[in-house]
Design a protein around this nucleic acid. Structure first.
Lengths: 188, 188
DNA sequence: CCTAAAATTTTACAAATGATAAAAATTATT
DNA sequence: AATAATTTTTATCATTTGTAAAATTTTAGG
């Protein structure tokens, strides 16, 4: 449970009993590669921490899938848009390796938020950090060329390139797999 | 103060005295078109509500500016990245019209977050809503062609196109002004 | 109303990326 | 190890978008 606990702690300092309380609510789930944790159009009100494994989130566009997020050990997965809009999410989350996750219903978290100041601030900080990550990715998308984005990804997350097939990486970078191949050939 | 109050209320329900307390902390500021509220590289720890006027946020890329956000009546402005990372922000915010704003130091807000459950949850919801907006824009950027994005903007924010010059709109859409002109010519 | 400045559109050409198909390389399965 | 399935690369051509410069339109100030 180390990655999950480290993540929870890193978000915002919780007292020891609150940390106990939180981890006590978590249910371990083992799932196989290929499993879909969320499905677009379906409601899912659970938050997962990814203790082991790797996952991607994608949206469907007519024929193809568009990967817009990767998560690895210590990351958490939830449908923010489904939760905030109280609707079905627009993303599907697929496990790309056999995985160990810890699960908690968002309703239970919400209850903590409504009743406990520390948890409410924990939830705020969780969202704030997620927000600036998304914002930074958004801006880097606008700023940088495809080649620069690929280089940056290699530096920031070299493990990703080893664990995830290039078609998904290309989609994540906003280019076709053919273009990514060209970029890789150029960089050799 | 109507837009500002409406915005505060829409984020998360606050009791009447908390609303009073909040609005009592706000300081009215009138500023001229062209004024820079935030400057990239500088620290600014204020939150502003835009009561009247229109603003854009941009980053510098070598020679040119990249507009990545517009705000109008009822929107709020702050440097989330500067605040969360406790660093200087990477964005500049420029007023595109003479404006009336209400200002509050983030430190005062933070104090409310740390001491009051309702405010802590208000801050959480504020961030959650901002997050899904950013996420949706990020995905729509990847999904849609430049033409589709322009059409969507025309529908969602027709006022923007009347109030903001096209060079900024083009940048916001992630294309050059020439490309935007071509798109507009096609749509005629 | 006139002029100067700024913003927008148009044009011509160059560069980047996409689409498609096929070949090569890698991985999984028997 | 051999075969099949999947993934990645390569090649070709079409399309989109960018760059630069000029022409036009709009805006702001006197």
């Amino acid at each position: 449970m180390q990655h999950t606990i480290a993540r929870i702690k890193s978000v915002y300092p919780l007292s020891e009993d609150r940390l106990q309380q939180f981890t006590g609510m978590l249910e371990a789930v083992e799932l196989k590669k290929g499993h879909l944790l969320f499905r677009e159009g379906k409601t899912c009100r659970d938050l997962y921490f990814l203790e082991k494994g790797i996952a991607r989130a994608y949206c469907s566009t007519g024929d193809s899938h568009l990967t817009f997020w990767f998560g690895t050990e210590g990351d958490f997965l939830m449908s923010f848009n489904g939760y905030v809009n109280n609707s079905a999410g627009y993303e599907t989350i697929e496990l790309l390796e056999d995985a160990l996750l810890y699960k908690v219903p968002v309703a239970e978290l919400e209850h903590l938020y409504q009743t406990d100041l520390q948890f409410a601030n924990w939830g705020r900080k969780l969202t704030e950090k997620e927000l600036i990550q998304t914002e930074e990715r958004f801006i880097s998308r606008q700023f940088k060329t495809a080649t620069e984005r690929y280089k940056a990804l290699m530096e920031e997350a070299p493990g990703l390139l080893r664990r995830v097939q290039l078609g998904y990486i290309a989609s994540y970078l906003g280019i076709t797999q053919v273009t990514l191949s060209r970029i890789r050939a150029e960089l050799k």
